[in-house]
Amino acid sequence: MPISRIAIGNPGEASRPDAIRAAFAEFFSMIIFVFAGEGSGMAFNKLTDNGSTTPSGLVAAALAHAFALFVAVSVGANISGGHVNPAVTFGAFIGGNITLLRTILYWIAQLLGSVVACLLLKFATGGQETSAFSLSSGVSAWNAVVFEIVMTFGLVYTVYATAVDPKKGNVGIVAPIAIGFIVGANILAGGAFDGASMNPAVSFGPAVVSWSWTNHWVYWLGPMAGAAIAAIVYDNIFIGESTHEPLPANDF
């Protein structure tokens, strides 16, 4: 079980230069991702008089998030592993690929990055609202939890297969593209139902800036559960004890 490899980390880890650099990398990558992703939705709302729920708006959101995540993962990959998502970090932690202390450090950086990106968007757009994630009519909170679990499972499973697996070989080169593609595809699948977050930080920033917390717990429970399931499934079935190699501290 990967859970047997969970590590707490030593108290001085959070002050190590490599850990601090990794946290800054996550912070700036999150700003890049949220500013482009959330900003595309705000721009579409402005151009279409709040018509972001149209099919073209959904496609635009999927493309913007896929492109932005590809870049955000790429620029952070050599420093922090390019998680850009508390759920991805949690999945890496469950698989024994990152310590608890570094996980918390990443979470803080990711959440702050999302808030800063939303504040920058609100200022740059003259006060336009950064809309918090919400459920569509007829979609219950538990429906949305299932959506988030399945979509985040797909995301973290892709991360494990292309970035974490020691046997990944040359496929690791396309990891940022694959990660961006699965997020874009999941937005097309679930965006009309619950916004398709798959990322607690992406939900957290708009919620803080707009101070709207209705059903916010959905966007934490679903992604975290999906990430944990993906980590356990992939690690046990495809990596296993015999082939597991702890990755360097500056990677996953």
Score class of each variant (00 low, 15 high):
5 R>M: 05
5 R>C: 09
6 I>S: 09
7 A>C: 12
9 G>C: 03
10 N>P: 02
10 N>E: 10
13 E>R: 11
16 R>T: 01
19 A>P: 03
21 R>M: 00
22 A>D: 01
22 A>N: 01
23 A>P: 00
24 F>T: 00
25 A>D: 00
30 M>F: 02
30 M>Y: 04
33 F>V: 08
34 V>I: 11
34 V>N: 07
35 F>Y: 06
39 G>V: 00
40 S>M: 15
41 G>W: 04
43 A>M: 12
44 F>A: 06
45 N>E: 09
47 L>P: 04
52 S>N: 07
53 T>I: 09
62 A>K: 06
64 A>V: 08
67 F>C: 07
67 F>H: 06
69 L>T: 10
73 V>R: 09
74 S>P: 05
77 A>Q: 12
83 H>M: 13
84 V>K: 11
86 P>F: 08
86 P>A: 04
87 A>E: 12
89 T>L: 03
99 T>L: 10
102 R>G: 06
104 I>N: 12
105 L>T: 11
105 L>N: 13
112 L>N: 09
112 L>A: 11
119 L>F: 09
127 G>Y: 00
128 Q>R: 04
132 A>S: 03
138 G>W: 02
141 A>E: 11
141 A>V: 06
143 N>L: 04
143 N>Q: 12
144 A>H: 12
144 A>Q: 10
145 V>S: 02
150 V>K: 15
152 T>N: 05
154 G>T: 07
158 T>W: 01
161 A>N: 10
164 V>L: 11
167 K>G: 07
168 K>L: 05
170 N>R: 14
175 A>G: 05
177 I>N: 04
177 I>L: 14
185 A>K: 07
187 I>Q: 07
188 L>R: 03
188 L>E: 00
189 A>E: 01
193 F>I: 08
194 D>A: 15
194 D>V: 04
195 G>A: 03
195 G>Y: 06
197 S>A: 14
197 S>C: 13
200 P>N: 05
200 P>C: 03
205 G>E: 02
206 P>S: 05
208 V>Y: 00
210 S>Y: 00
211 W>R: 11
212 S>C: 04
212 S>H: 00
221 L>F: 05
225 A>W: 04
227 A>S: 02
228 A>K: 10
228 A>E: 08
233 V>M: 13
236 N>D: 12
237 I>M: 10
238 F>S: 09
239 I>Q: 13
240 G>F: 05
242 S>A: 13
244 H>M: 09
245 E>W: 06
247 L>F: 15
250 N>G: 15
252 F>H: 15
